[in-house]
Amino acid sequence: MTDSQPVRELPSKLVQLLRMLWRDKLACIAAAFLLLVICCALFGPMMLEDLATKQNLRGRNAPPFDFSKNWTFWLGGDALGRPLLARIIVAAGNTMMVAAGAVFCSLLIGTTLGMIAGYTSKLTSQIILRLADVIMSFPSLLLAVIVLYMLPASVGNLVIVLAITRIPVYLRTARAEVLEIRERMFVQAARVMGASTPRIIFRHILPLVFPTLITIATLDFAFVMLAESSLSFLGIGIQPPEITWGLMVAQGRSYLTSAWWLSFWPGLAIIFTTLSLNLLSNWMRVALDPQQRWRLEMSTQND
């Protein structure tokens, strides 16, 4: 290979990424499903709010798959005769909002603290790490009870609780990555040129840490969803009449033996959403790792 060989032409990044997504059929389905959930979360509460809260005594615990009824009753009705399908779609709004808010906040705060811990003096770094230890071992249930005792049980406050508990995840990852990347040669090269610390962090280190953090955030989105459901299930999360999927499972629990569908469908919605997030995060891990990318780039002929 001589020095004068022509440079290689590659299609634009977005096209490459979409092409790689198309190669992985499962990830593709997952992405489509998530898109659907996001649509439900965005538009569902607006369009179906009335339907989902209207009580209908004749539809109490109506069994699923009764296609003679309105489509919102296809998955059955709950104990007050409200259509389950409509309620699931409406509940997607709160569920997604809590998870997205918590992931975004913890990502932002955790990454910032992690970067600081990775690029400053030993003392600051130690203080931040000990703080992370304390958060890690602080019982999240206690935190939830405290916050929700002092503040009303709203979506925003639930976001605070969940965000605090997830900060250490991003903090540790960001710190570890920064410690590794700051020793790389291009960072040294920037220092030789006289680049300032903020420039090195934001221009040189952050763009390389970002893909890892986004992959983790996708996975964490699923985790936070489950955590939110658990809190709601224990009765220390969102309070009725607001609904989330976790709360729906909890509400259906007392009718388990007579009307299994009350808990079953919202649980299934949780599983499918977290599964899709996991699939997408798995795909990202491969797609963003140059060493493994060939698995997705291989021509489809041997599939």
């Binding site: 699923a222 489950l226 459901s229 658990s230 299930f233 976790g246 499972v249 909890a250 629990r253 388990l256 033996t257 299994w260 808990s263 079953f264 649980g267 949780i270 599983i271 977290t274 599964l275 997030l277 996991n278 699939l279 798995n282």
Partner: peptide, 18 residues
Amino acid sequence: SLIAASAPDFWIAIVAIV
């Protein structure tokens, strides 16, 4: 493993009991 990692334990628990 993906399904296992995605399953909410309280839901699995009550379905298992039923």
